[in-house]
Design a protein around this nucleic acid. Structure first.
Lengths: 154, 154
DNA sequence: GTTGAAAAGTGCTGCGA
DNA sequence: TCGCAGCACTTTTCAAC
């Protein structure tokens, strides 16, 4: 794992800019940070080699492709040992976009994206609750996503 | 808002590929989908104009920059009307990476990223619970993030 | 709407400081 | 280790289909 000491302020600034807009040109970043384009390139290569960079993703508006509902699901498992097989099954449910193994009342915690309430019920009843080891679920629907961003590294 | 009918299969395929890797060259995508580079460009321009594309982000490994803890916070507000001002204050807490207004037991639901347990306690006690209108919080620590992906649009 | 090619801009590499 | 300059590649545009 990369050590924090290997990442200096310039690295952090470059990363921050690309975390907001991954397609921004290196030359443009170089201009703003008053270094050469080559330097930005060398730093990015270093950060990639260190495994700091996981990848880049294009973000779309889920509404535009017909996904209106975002919900969180707390999942109770019958026994903790069911976790590994449950995760494998959950991976096959495309509506699940995030899944965590958590402390607290639930064993697992998922974020799902659905087209409408009908679709949500279908995913809950026929997909998630049908998975072996899942005892019971609790659903929280997001009425508004007021903040979405990445961790600040500056 | 863009209509689903305006987005065809080719658009969806292009988006899917870029959602996995935003820096992939259009020419490369064009080759795989057996169309010309110009077509990919035209489609992407259309999708941008329609507002389907929200942006692109570089993803980093939070561990590599010293962030080890991911937690979910359920927030009880004294009264619903405190929501708007609370959101404004929450926006100023950089550790909060996601915030939702939800149905169910809590008024708000947040995802936060912290360096360690000390940092988590600091964010909870001194930042989130200090916000006017926040009555009480419940914390769930993610021990493992087993799934992270975007909604499938194919 | 799509194509293919030309023009402009960007990423990459090696050399020099 | 950093910056500069040349080359290869990509993006972008546009006329023609």
């Amino acid at each position: 794992m990369a050590q924090i000491s290997e990442i200096d302020n310039l690295d952090r600034k470059i990363l921050s800019m690309l975390m907001q807009d991954a397609t921004r040109a290196y030359t443009d970043i170089a201009k703003e940070l008053q270094v050469s384009g080559g330097t930005v390139h060398v730093r990015m290569k270093k950060l990639e080699d260190l495994g700091v960079i996981k990848g880049s993703h294009l973000f779309i508006n889920p509404n535009a492709v017909g996904y209106d509902i975002c919900a969180f699901i707390g999942i109770y498992l019958e026994k903790g040992s069911a976790y590994q097989t449950a995760v494998t099954k959950m991976r096959q449910v495309p509506e699940i976009v995030e899944m965590h193994y958590t402390t607290g009342q639930w064993s697992m915690f998922a974020k799902i994206i659905c087209r409408d309430t009908l679709h949500l019920r279908e995913v809950l009843n026929e997909k998630i609750q049908a998975i072996e080891g899942v005892e019971r679920t609790e659903t929280f629907i997001s009425l508004e996503e007021s903040i979405t961003r990445q961790v600040s590294i500056l």
